[in-house]
């Protein structure tokens, strides 16, 4: 059986969630590996959310927010960007491939872009193979 990754995606309520919604209502097809969690702002995405996702068995994590300058809370997406770079480094140190995490900007009218992004992300994670964090952590349980 082909490997079907689980990708947890955190979408901001204002732009990206509406963008993903547009992809759906416009009947676009995209990889069903994406599991959407709606957050009010990409700035709400605590780094522990991402780590917890991997810990619970996610193979990839996708964070989407408003384009720079569009944030409804003015600078939430910039805060997210800062944490993202930190997380990437941290993941590498912990032995997790940083490519499993991706941050992208999706506006509410970019349904098509979201569908493409989802497909690309699913492809990347498929090529990386399953993430073993959950199994390896079970030793400690």
């Amino acid at each position: 059986m082909e490997f079907e990754p689980k990708i947890v995606s955190f979408l901001c309520n204002w732009c990206s969630y509406t963008g993903a919604d547009l992809a759906g209502t416009s009947r676009m097809k995209y990889a069903s590996n994406i599991r959407v969690v709606r957050v009010m702002c990409s700035g709400r995405v605590d780094p522990t959310f991402v780590l917890k996702s991997f810990r619970e068995g996610a193979d990839g994590v996708l964070i989407c927010g408003c384009h720079p300058g569009d944030c409804h809370y003015h600078e939430g997406n910039y805060k997210c960007l800062r944490r993202y770079h930190f997380l990437k480094k941290y993941m590498a140190q912990m032995g997790l491939n940083p490519d499993r995490l991706k941050l992208a900007w999706i506006s509410a009218s970019e349904g098509k872009e979201f569908a493409q992004l989802a497909d690309e992300m699913a492809e990347t994670i498929k090529s990386l193979g399953p993430c073993k964090v959950k199994e390896e952590m079970e030793i400690f349980d």
């Binding site: 204002w14 509406t18 919604d21 547009l22 569009d70 409804h72 506006s107 509410a108 009218s109």
Partner: peptide, 9 residues
């Protein structure tokens, strides 16, 4: 700003 991001919610 993207108009839809403000209006659709």
């Amino acid at each position: 700003d993207c108009a839809a991001c403000i209006l659709t919610p």
